[in-house]
């Protein structure tokens, strides 16, 4: 699988740049391999815990698209920190169109 570059902006403002992110792998798993602070992925990608919540930078929202109904429902569980650009990292499978993607790690629940 081809690789791309994705950037996580952690809660303290520091950036983790991952320049060998493998396409076909989720954003959550990608973050976990590099220990991005605040991306826990507790449920392992089942779309149930919302511990891989990110805010997608505006330029990238159209590329990633909207959450599906399951993801929307899971986000409701953390509605106090949900924004228009919220996504769960486990539900975003990286693709070549996402090369350069930037997301901000959401605060803890």
């Amino acid at each position: 699988m081809p690789t791309i570059t994705v950037t996580f902006i952690q809660r303290d403002g520091s950036e983790v740049v991952i320049d060998d992110a493998v396409t076909g792998i989720s954003l959550m798993e990608t973050a976990r391999t590099k220990d991005v602070d605040g991306i826990i992925g507790e449920c392992g990608g089942s779309c149930a815990c919302a511990t891989c919540h990110v805010y997608v930078e505006p330029d990238w929202q159209a590329v990633l698209g909207e959450p599906d109904v399951l993801e929307e429902m899971t986000l409701e569980g953390v509605s106090h920190i949900v924004q228009d650009n919220s996504r769960l990292g486990c539900q975003v499978l990286l693709s070549e169109a996402m090369d350069g993607l930037r997301v901000v790690v959401a605060p803890p629940q």
Binding site: S26, G44, G45, S46, C47, L70, C90, Q91, L93
Partner: peptide
């Protein structure tokens, strides 16, 4: 858990 959870992701 890590060795198991890949099996049943939502995807």
């Amino acid at each position: 858990r890590k060795l198991m959870e890949g099996a049943f992701t939502a995807h």
